[in-house]
Structures are given as C-alpha cells and as structure tokens.
C-alpha cells in the first residue's frame, strides 16, 4: 500500500510535469498508468476490509472484441493496433495487458479440444516457423495470411491502412478517433496524407495500393513458400501457434 501511494504521488507529479512541458501523449499515457494505480489502490483498500467485488463482465468477451478488430484489419496485427481499432471504431477500451494470456488460453483450448470453437486467435509464423513476437492472427484465415516473409510487415501495414480507410469511407459519420488513426497511418505512406491535415480515405487508399503493387508479387511468393513448409512440417497445433524453439530449426532456411 505504501509503495502504491508513493508511486501514485510520483505519477501525479510526472503528469503535472508532462502537461507543463506540453508532452501530451506522454501525459496521456502517464494518466492511464495513474488511473491503473489508483484502481489498484482502490482494490487493495477494499481487499483489506471487504471481499473483492466481482469484476464487471464486459458486454462482449475480449476474444470477440479482438476478433472483430482483426476481421476489420484482415491481416495479422499487434495488440497496439488492435486496441486502436477497437477504440476508434467500436468505442471500446481494451487494454494491452488484457492480451497477455489470450494467446496462451487459445492454444490451451485448442490442444484440449481441437477445432471445437469456430475460430481461434493464433500466432503469425515467421519464416523460421516460430511464432512472430507480438502479432495475433485468426485461425480461419488462409495459411499464407498467417505466415510472414521479410516484406510482410510492410505489406500488412499497407493492407490494414487500406482496410481502415475503406471502413471509414463506409460510415456516414466517421468517428474522429478513426480519422485520427487513419491519419497517423497515412503519414507513413508516401502520398497518402498532406502534412498534419486529416487524411482523406480515397487518397490514402490510392497511395497505399500504389506501394502495395511494388511489394505484392514478391511477398506472395515468399509467403506461399513459408506456408507450404509449415503445412509440410508442422502438426495442426503448431501450424496455428508456431513451432517451439527447437522445432523451428527443422527445415529453417539458413
């Protein structure tokens, strides 16, 4: 408790400092941390006297929220992007920390009762067939989509930008958070955004597709090769969740 209180006091001071220095995104992340600590404190205080209250069940289970975001993006994505998409399009506040056990739980569930669920949240596999760090995919996707070649991170980023823009263009009233998300993505695609102005979905799509054209063929060939290798060498569960460290050496390219 004492340590928590000290940490909270420190965080408050840091937030003030960040606000004064006009470091807005830092202040925001610090505030998030502060809220978490205050929450912890509330819980700890309560735990000393009352039994902990049941955590409120979210309307949609986490795995379904993640699945929806991944379905929108259509490619393997990192928790940070999944959180951003949920926030921008569905006004849901997922937290990065909620992802930690997600993939492990999915794997456990698949191992104990394979294919019992309509889909599993799984890994994307590297060209060494190991699970790519920090990326989530959906088991029902084509195998080529669930593996990565060296060009895939860029291709998947461009693809997800196109998907975000397409989704945005379909909404009669685009949520401001979603426009901001697209703008941030577009700023890293040549010709997709003008300076700091909000990105236009049509321009962003055109620019992202233009760059995609440059990489598409080579990426598809590399991914097909990795997917074929995974299909040949790995049992079902590893095809979804990646080969364990030693297994990854088998048939590795170098």
């Amino acid at each position: 408790m004492d340590a928590l209180e000290r940490r909270i006091a420190d965080l408050r001071a840091e937030v003030r400092r960040a606000v004064k220095a006009r470091e807005h995104s830092l202040a925001r992340s610090l505030r998030g941390e502060l809220r978490r600590m205050e929450h912890e404190w509330d819980r700890a205080v309560g735990a000393e006297e009352l039994p902990a209250p049941e955590p409120e069940a979210p309307l949609l289970p986490i795995r379904e929220q993640v699945h929806q975001a991944l379905a929108l993006l259509g490619v393997p994505a990192a928790p940070k992007l999944i959180v951003a998409v949920n926030d921008a399009f569905f006004s849901r506040a997922l937290r990065g920390s909620q992802f930690t056990s997600l993939r492990r739980d999915e794997e456990r569930s698949f191992r104990s009762d394979p294919y019992a669920r309509p889909y599993y949240l799984c890994s994307a596999l590297t060209d060494r067939l190991s699970p790519a760090r920090g990326l989530l995919a959906v088991s029902t996707w084509a195998p080529e989509l669930r593996v990565l070649g060296p060009l895939s991170p860029r291709v998947d980023f461009l693809t997800s930008a196109v998907r975000v823009a397409e989704h945005l263009a379909r909404l009669p009233e685009p949520p401001p958070g979603a426009v901001r998300l697209l703008t941030r993505m577009a700023q890293n695609i040549p010709g997709a955004a003008e300076g700091f102005a909000p990105a236009d979905p049509v321009t962003a799509i055109r620019a992202a597709r233009a760059e995609l054209e440059v990489h598409r063929a080579a990426d598809a060939a590399q991914r097909a090769e990795v997917a074929a290798r995974a299909g040949r060498l790995l049992p079902d569960v590893e095809r979804l969740f990646g080969a364990a460290a030693l297994g990854a050496l088998r048939g590795a390219a170098c």
Partner: peptide
C-alpha cells in the same frame, strides 16, 4: 511499430531509400 513504418518514412526522406526496400527481420 507496424514493421518499422515510422523508420521507413524517415530513411526514405533522409537517405532516399527506394520504395521497394522494405524487408524486416526480427
């Protein structure tokens, strides 16, 4: 993040890295 998307933009601006060069290995 996103396959070094920010870094890619920076190197394209700073060093004229060609568009086709985007490979990433972790």
């Amino acid at each position: 993040e996103n396959g070094c998307a920010e870094l890619l933009r920076l190197l394209r601006e700073l060093l004229g890295l060609p568009i086709a060069q985007v490979g990433y290995q972790d």
